[in-house]
Nucleic acid binder design. Structure first.
Length: 479
RNA sequence: GGCGGCAUAGCCAAGUGGUAAGGCAGCGGUCUGCAAAACCGCUAUUCACCAGUUCGAAUCUGGUUGCCGCCUCCA
């Protein structure tokens, strides 16, 4: 099976062939740490987390770099607002980033460099650009001259001449071309500043990624990712910087994820509709958030709504419920005990097609239904063949879960946590529930159906549904 | 103004030349004291619209309409 990847550079799917066989070097633009992460950050980070996991599953030796932009105007603004140091702002939000991403089961990147820890490399990079004639100094600022780079615009499909016609960019008189961008910015008193050949200042935004990707991945590497909005100007500028110096293709595959809307609206400051990760995971299980994010293709926009999240939660319940059943029948295997089966192979086919996790999720539910059917049809003892078959499928589902970063809890833990969360929210003592269930079962034994049903209705009002199973009554939280 | 994307059932969503995955909701059934859960069946002759290419198109081409994104250091 060959993996195909949609490359923004060229805008088509291409067979994935890393520069060095068996190795993948990938760089993803991380956040500018001036505020809490919102659901849009979550999508980008989760999508690339899954891409990295899948590449590893495919057997590639992956080196994954994701940076933190920890020096920036917005960080400085925030520091002024809070009357603290910019680096404290950055530290605070890096800490929050980890809290959010850990909750979402995002694996750490192999290297997570910060811009401020690479000032030396950045300055050297800029010097290099000056030497090669791609940059110029005005007062104490250094700019990149886009006109010097012939291929400027090749990633985003723009041409300098065409852009100028309708550009709304305010013309900065210090720039030779309105699209020239700052490489080194002189500092005002009190701002973070480093000594440089051009005076005290700080790096522009784009240069850190060129400098740090080179530092950790070399002059050329395989995958560079980020949100769609970064295509222009950020990634276009990175190409201009890196290719100007190294005179060869900077990145082989550019991957960009689509945006998250909230109730069909773009998240924006003016609408005040930013959904922060920490709030989303208060309301929903983090795995439900992941399942939601992965149930649509990564390049399409996705709409965050309460309904969509309820459906994702219900879907997750459905899978964990299946595990409850299979664990009882065949026990819980761990990935590695069993050879991958058909289900896993179909999932891989989907993922091989430009990481089509949406199709993969479809296959997951398809499989869940098949196992439930098998269990329904074989109510009594399972033959050893069936047990083995179910174990294989169960393990496939777990394998898929590991790739998508879901299904990492035991069904018991999952449902227990869900229960206690809701009970806590509603300040209900679980023993009250248990007592009601006992009372209802007593009524049922006496065939007092009226009383039993009345108790069931009372529980329903508390968002609790009861299931009378052959082996006893259990209760669950409904969404 | 420039560049790009999208339009598939009530809703969400796969599907890039071979006769419409999956989820949610709905209806009917099996199971059940009744339910719930699970399963089975039904639910798009049709993929925004028009024209074209082809033996054959949701998929390719041209056009129309509608929505959205980027061109603002927003993932």
């Amino acid at each position: 099976m060959t993996l195909k990847v949609f490359n923004t550079l060229g805008r088509k799917k291409e067979a994935f062939e890393p520069l060095e066989p068996g190795k993948v070097r990938m760089y993803v633009c991380g956040p500018t740490v001036y505020d809490s992460c919102h659901i849009g950050h979550a999508r980008s980070v989760v999508v690339f987390d899954v891409i990295a996991r899948y590449l590893r599953v495919k057997g590639y030796d992956v080196t994954y770099v994701r940076n933190f932009t920890d020096v920036d105007d917005k960080i400085i603004d925030k520091a002024n607002q809070l009357a603290i140091e910019p680096q404290d702002v950055a530290e605070r939000y890096i800490k929050e980033f980890y809290e959010d991403m850990d909750a979402l089961n995002v694996e750490r990147a192999d290297i997570e460099p910060k811009a401020t820890a690479h000032i030396h490399q950045i300055i050297r990079f800029i010097e290099h650009l000056m030497d090669e004639g791609f940059a110029y100094q005005t007062n104490s600022d250094v700019y990149y001259s886009v006109e010097k780079f012939n291929e400027y615009g090749k990633l985003s499909g723009r041409r300098l001449e065409e852009m100028e016609a309708g550009a709304r960019v305010e013309v900065d008189i210090k720039k030779q071309n309105p699209f020239d961008f700052v490489l080194w910015k002189s500092s005002k008193p009190g701002e973070p500043a480093w000594k440089s050949p051009w005076g005290m200042g700080r790096p522009g935004w784009h240069i850190e990624c060129s400098a740090m990707s080179c530092e950790y991945l070399g002059e050329m590497f395989d995958i560079h990712g980020g949100g769609k909005d970064l295509t222009f100007p950020h990634h276009e500028n990175e190409i201009a910087q890196s290719e100007a110096i190294f005179k060869k293709p900077f990145v082989k595959y550019w991957i960009h994820n689509g945006f998250v809307n909230i109730n069909q609206e773009k998240m924006s400051k003016s609408l005040g509709n930013f959904l922060m990760i920490k709030d989303a995971i208060k309301a929903y299980h983090p795995e439900a958030v992941r399942l939601f994010l992965l149930s649509k293709h990564y390049r399409s926009p996705i709409d965050f709504t309460e309904k969509a999240m309820d459906e994702a939660s219900a879907g997750l319940d459905k899978i964990y419920s299946l595990f409850e059943r299979t664990v009882e029948k065949v026990g819980l295997a761990t990935v590695g005990d069993t050879e991958p089966g058909d289900c896993w192979e179909k999932f891989c086919e989907a993922m091989d097609d430009d990481f089509n996790s949406a199709r993969g999720v479809g296959i997951l539910f398809d499989t869940v239904r098949k196992v439930n059917r098998t269990l329904d049809q074989n109510n009594g003892e399972l033959s050893s063949e069936l047990q083995t078959a179910i174990l294989t499928i169960q393990t496939d589902i777990l394998r898929i879960g590991q790739t998508l970063g879901i299904l990492l809890e035991s069904p018991k833990t999952y449902f227990d946590k869900k229960r206690s969360k809701v009970l806590q929210q509603k300040s209900i003592d679980p023993s009250v529930i248990e007592n009601l269930i006992q009372e209802r079962n007593a009524a049922r034994r006496e065939k007092n159906w009226e009383k039993a049903d009345e108790i069931r209705l009372r529980l329903q009002d508390l968002n609790i549904s009861v299931e009378d199973r052959p082996e006893g009554t259990i209760w669950k939280i409904t969404n």
